[in-house]
Simulated assay, not measured.
Amino acid sequence: MTALDITSLPKVSLHDHLDGGLRPQTILELADEVGLETPAADAEALQAWFDEKSDSGSLVEYLKTFDLTTGVMQTTDALARVAREFVQDLGADGVVYGEIRWAPEQHLQRGLSLDDVVEAVQSGLDEGVADVEATGRRIRVGQLVSAMRHLDRGLEIAQLAVRHRDRGVVGFDIAGPEDGFAPERMRDAFDYLAREFMPRTVHAGEAAGLASIRSALFDGRAMRLGHGVRIAEDITTAREDGDSTYVTLGPVAQWVKDREIALETSPSSNLQTGAIAQWGDELIDHPFDLLYQLGFAVTVNTDNRLQSHTTLSRELGLLVDTFGYDLDDLAAFQLNAATAAFLSLDDRQDLVDQIVDGFERA
């Protein structure tokens, strides 16, 4: 199966950060407009800088690259442009539904309000959808408003998300440094969201382990887990006489599996940030295949297309090359994502039908 074949397939992107999906040339042009210094003067060299800085094996170091991307996203025009190009790039990659997460509180340095930045991003997303549809393709997108878990504005951002739920926002997330900043710190925000019936996904099981996942499920009432790969810490495998392998799920893993709580895995990013370091440092060591074979609701995502120098089609291609997946497997990943999308039941069924139709024609 070639990358071109995968690009043509209908895909669902659930975990894709707006400030991690800028085009290098756009960064240079926006930085020039506001007088922000960049570490490279041309797009190719700037991409190489992101490649180097993102392969540290540390989530903390990985996150430092966002100082540059958020630095150029501080005006309404810049936010709208980045959002528009983001959707254009999703459409070019064959994505038919994308949830785009970002943290509005990181874009207030030049005097914009929280509502201003959400509206600016939505205007860009709408323009991007129109651009994609003008090419004869179909795409739908929604905003996932994220609160930075270390900045203690969770309730305020949750209220922002609810205010805009009928104007493009489809859900809430918490992002940023995971280790040491458990979801329980924002329990008031999650209580409010539950009362308002607002969908929630929570970054957990990336830079921290089972305790973080437990808090996401209990305190955050998470409907999906952002990355979630360290749920594998709650899985025990043992080989006995012969070739038989026995697998035992702990209580957290069993809960996540039984309730089909989607895992928003991002293979390349998980390698870059060290999320799977305890199992190895190559894609073959990623617990993705174990989770898939055990029946977990795994989904495939990019996390940050710029930092990982990737696309959703590339991530799927890497899994095909590593684990030998075929078209049916790729369809399963997309159907898992469609089922977990923060859409109405009818809209999720339409999305499922679109994916099934697209894969049948492949």
Rank of each mutant, 00 (worst) to 15 (best):
E44T: 11
Q109P: 00
D350E: 12
A216C: 06
T302S: 15
Q47C: 00
V95T: 08
V145W: 10
I27N: 02
A362Y: 09
R214Y: 05
R195Q: 14
V356K: 10
Q349W: 06
L330F: 04
D55N: 12
Y246N: 08
P199K: 04
F86K: 09
D326V: 10
E52T: 12
D32W: 03
L46I: 06
L312F: 01
P24M: 11
L155P: 11
F296N: 02
S13G: 11
Q293L: 09
V170F: 02
F359S: 10
P199M: 07
E61Q: 08
S313L: 03
Q106F: 11
R221Q: 14
L30F: 03
I235Q: 06
D173H: 10
I284Q: 13
R187A: 12
I276W: 03
D353P: 10
A41Y: 08
R200V: 15
G228F: 02
E119H: 13
H150C: 14
A78Y: 04
D126A: 12
Y97Q: 01
R214G: 09
G274N: 14
L217N: 08
A147E: 05
I213K: 05
L4V: 15
D77R: 12
F86W: 12
G209P: 14
R314T: 04
G71W: 01
N301M: 12
A275M: 03
R259N: 12
L14Q: 10
T311H: 08
L291M: 15
D42Q: 01
S123D: 15
R149V: 04
L112N: 12
V320A: 00
V352S: 09
V202W: 05
R163E: 13
D152P: 00
T26L: 13
R230V: 04
E260D: 12
Q143G: 02
G142Q: 10
Q122M: 13
G128N: 01
L225K: 01
V12D: 13
Q143V: 04
